[in-house]
């Protein structure tokens, strides 16, 4: 079982649209409380599966077609790819629901901490893939980025057997449930890879991102 002991405060604050200025002692206290309560309930888990890349354009990994040019560009030069699904579990959703009743300020904080925890969990999955393969990895690329449709969520869940192994499923609207879950693909190569991080320009939310509107970013600028 994997464990998250601390949540990246800086990243979580970015998700709360924090830019600058003094955080009041009252807010600071709540931040600590929310982080603590969230850490008590999350159950971070990940699954991944490594495939050979069988075609570059269009991109096929194993016998799965990943449509769009962006993902194909992203995995250029790789001979394998790993599909991964991670989650911090259903209890986080429940805590966020309860917080919305108890105190909306805490709900916003907990929601951001939980998103951050899911990203940390994805980092751990990436590390496990790197350790297993001893190879170089590209950045994570998820359904909904660039021209890889969000409707691919289902395929990611199926090929990582995520429903059965870590309890992640997908709604009719293609959002993941539990909410604080992530699916992604990373390219694998024995040769050095130029780590092109997913930036705002190739993000599906480029036009509408709340963080960008506030002049902030999610960390992958």
């Amino acid at each position: 079982m994997i464990k998250i002991d601390r949540i990246d405060r800086e990243q979580a604050l970015r998700y709360m649209a924090y830019r600058e200025g003094v955080i009041s002692p009252a807010a600071e206290e709540l931040l600590d409380e929310c982080e603590k309560r969230l850490l008590e309930v999350i159950k971070p888990k990940f699954v991944y599966r490594i495939f050979e890349i069988t075609s570059s354009y269009p991109l096929m990994i194993g016998n799965v077609l990943l449509p769009g040019n962006d993902i194909a560009d992203h995995l250029k030069g790789c001979d394998r790819a790993a599909m991964l699904t991670v989650t911090v579990g259903a209890e986080a959703d429940k805590l966020i629901r309860a917080m919305q009743i108890e105190d909306m300020a805490k709900a916003v904080m907990t929601d951001a901490f939980a998103s951050t925890a899911a990203e940390q969990c994805a980092d751990m999955a990436e590390k496990a893939i790197a350790d297993e393969t001893g190879a170089n990895l590209t950045w994570r690329f998820s359904p909904g980025y660039g021209d890889l449709p969000l409707s691919m969520q289902k395929v990611f869940l199926e090929f990582t057997d995520a429903r059965r192994r870590i309890g992640v499923s997908c709604l009719d609207s293609d959002l993941l449930a539990p909410v604080k879950s992530v699916t992604a693909v990373v390219g694998i190569s024995d040769d050095p890879i130029e780590r092109k991080r997913q930036g705002c320009l190739s993000c599906a939310l480029e036009q509408t991102c709340m963080l960008r509107k506030r002049g902030s970013h999610c960390g992958y600028k």
Binding site: M16, Y18, V108, G215
Partner: peptide, 18 residues
């Protein structure tokens, strides 16, 4: 106004409103 300027963040705005 502080929120608009970015000198306080969303949870603080909610706290004040609370």
């Amino acid at each position: 106004a502080d929120f608009e300027k970015g000198t306080i963040f969303l949870p603080q705005l909610i706290l004040s409103a609370g």
